[in-house]
Amino acid sequence: MTTSTPPLPEIVSAQEWDTALSQLLIKEKALTRAQDALNAERRRLPMVEIKNDYRFDGNTGQVSLLDLFEGRRQLIVYHFMFAPDWSQGCSGCSWVVEAMPHLAHLHARNTSLVLVSRAPLKQLEAYKKRMGWDLPWYSSLGSDFNADFGATTRQGEKHGVSVLLRDGDNLYRTYFTGARGVEHLGSHWTYLDLTPWGRQETWEDSPKGWPQTEPYSWLRRHDEYGD
């Protein structure tokens, strides 16, 4: 009987390891700068007005798309794959949700985040209880929301992230990504990077007039932000 062990990286001296690490960190820093430039370009994307009066079922009753903002200016919608005839939610989407940040950090930057699926609210609430989640989750069953936003097609359900901006009662869609575009999500930084206002810190390359504060000055523990 033969056995095998997982392959291991090459073993080198401390000096050789330090040299190899330094070379890699140069490339990582370049990637970070490239990502900063891409985020700056995203903040300058044009937007499209949302004119349909979409309705959703939530645990407080039927609400509008405007209600999902909860009074904040920006809204991130995660299109969670859960069709009406499914017995449970998508496993991949569940991975994404379980890596989401504490929403208090997004709220501190005037940004709300919700999940939206086509399954009836009763099914969403049951799965939410099973998973131990407390994120706001709404059913779009009976509306054209999923189809209009590319989350339900002839091929079936699709996952993705839509970003919306509110100007008074006028709503706009500013960004969307799907497929592997959601893989890098998992911290409040990456979610804020998707929004038109970004992290709202002075080091960012943003259009004139964008809300900004000094880096890290706004950070709090999630129970210290207050209202």
Rank of each mutant, 00 (worst) to 15 (best):
T2K: 14
T5L: 12
P6S: 08
P9T: 03
E10Y: 15
E10N: 11
S13N: 04
T19N: 10
L25H: 04
I26F: 05
I26E: 15
E28L: 07
A30G: 08
L31F: 01
T32W: 09
Q35H: 03
L38K: 05
N39L: 04
A40Q: 12
E41T: 02
E41P: 00
R43T: 01
L45K: 09
V48F: 02
I50M: 11
D57E: 10
G58H: 07
G58F: 06
G61D: 08
G61S: 11
Q62D: 09
S64Q: 14
L65T: 09
R73A: 10
L75D: 08
Y78V: 07
F80E: 14
F82Y: 15
A83S: 14
G92M: 14
G92P: 04
G92S: 15
C93T: 13
E98A: 15
E98M: 15
E98F: 13
H102L: 12
L103G: 08
R109N: 10
L121Q: 12
K122D: 14
A126Q: 07
Y127M: 10
K128W: 01
K129D: 09
R130L: 13
L135A: 05
W137H: 12
S140K: 02
T152Q: 09
Q155R: 10
E157A: 11
H159N: 05
V161R: 01
V161P: 00
L164G: 00
G168S: 03
A179V: 03
V182N: 03
E183G: 07
H188D: 04
D193Y: 01
G198Q: 03
R199A: 13
E201I: 09
E201S: 06
K208R: 08
G209D: 08
W210E: 03
W210P: 00
H222G: 00
D223G: 02
D227P: 01
D227F: 05
